[in-house]
């Protein structure tokens, strides 16, 4: 009996949290106009969220691309198909690795920082103080951070893919002497603008929405104590990772499964 009770208890808790987070999200949306009217706030958050994640994404992208290049050459050379290296590197980066890996890195770097920041603001009563000054913290604090995250991640994912493709070029063409012409031309022949690039961008937009939402909600919903904030930060990274991978599967099935 206790077993079923605990299942019931946790599912009710989950539903309640889902409801709270939906209300939270709709409140963020009403802050959209306010964010637009305060570009200064948005720029500050674009710096905190986007620019500070830039190097992490750029360097990770380079190495992931180089590894793809090396592994690709080793595998493809058994079929004598090194000339298809460009397709392999670009397709895997643009469709999957670019959006997914950059979203995971983003959740670890920017998402956890957002949760900790908002949780700490809650613990030190800064959010309450704002409410008492008749300033809605959802508009002033949360909304600019959400939209900054929502803008940053798709841009970072594009950067990740582009640098990864250059990394694959470095490893495959410069290091292992794959033909430079076939690297690019095979790639251009096989990668479709709509099916691959646009779908990849759509994926990263959805991941951006997920990660920003989860990170900010966990911070806002955190128990305002030291241990509560650390648990919320952990939850942000774990939940984001789950959500990214689950949605990646769903989106891939929708986008690439049909054809």
């Amino acid at each position: 009996m206790n077993f079923f009770q605990s299942i019931g208890h946790s599912s009710l808790k989950f539903l309640a949290k889902l409801g709270r987070s939906s209300l939270f999200f709709s409140a963020i949306l009403t802050g959209f106009g306010y964010t637009l009217s305060r570009p200064g706030l948005l720029i500050k958050q674009l710096y905190n969220i986007g620019v500070l994640t830039f190097w992490l994404i750029a360097i990770s992208g380079l190495f992931v691309g180089m590894v793809l290049g090396l592994q690709g050459v080793y595998t493809l050379s058994t079929f004598g198909a090194e000339s298809s290296l460009g397709i392999m590197v670009a397709a895997s980066l643009v469709r999957e690795l670019g959006p997914v890996v950059s979203a995971l890195l983003f959740a670890g770097r920017a998402g956890s920082a957002l949760t900790a920041e908002i949780g700490l603001m809650k613990a030190t009563e800064q959010l309450s103080a704002m409410e008492m000054m008749a300033i809605d913290p959802l508009k002033y604090i949360i909304a600019p951070r959400f939209f900054a995250g929502f803008i940053s991640l798709p841009l970072l994912a594009a950067l990740f893919s582009a640098i990864g493709i250059l990394g694959g070029y470095l490893a495959g063409v410069e290091l292992l002497n794959v033909d430079s012409g076939s690297y690019w031309s095979q790639m251009q022949g096989a990668i479709d603008f709509h099916d691959d690039i646009i779908n990849g961008v759509i994926k990263s937009i959805i991941f951006a929405w997920l990660v920003s939402w989860i990170a900010l909600f966990e911070g806002y919903d955190a128990v305002p104590t030291a241990s509560g904030i650390s648990r919320a930060t952990t939850r942000t990274v774990v939940t984001s990772a789950f959500a990214i991978l689950l949605f990646d599967f769903l989106l891939t099935a929708l986008m690439f499964g049909a054809s």
């Binding site: 720029i43 500050k44 674009l46 620019v51 841009l155 893919s161 790639m187 603008f193 691959d196």
Partner: peptide, 30 residues
């Protein structure tokens, strides 16, 4: 309120990333 260097950095970041997007569109895809 935000100082000038902040705006410049953000501007650089956004334009670099958009350049990456163009690279993907023009150099990588059809």
């Amino acid at each position: 309120m935000p100082c000038k260097s902040l705006e410049i950095l953000v501007g650089l970041f956004v334009s670099l990333c958009i350049a990456a997007l163009f690279f993907l569109a023009l150099q990588v895809s059809n």
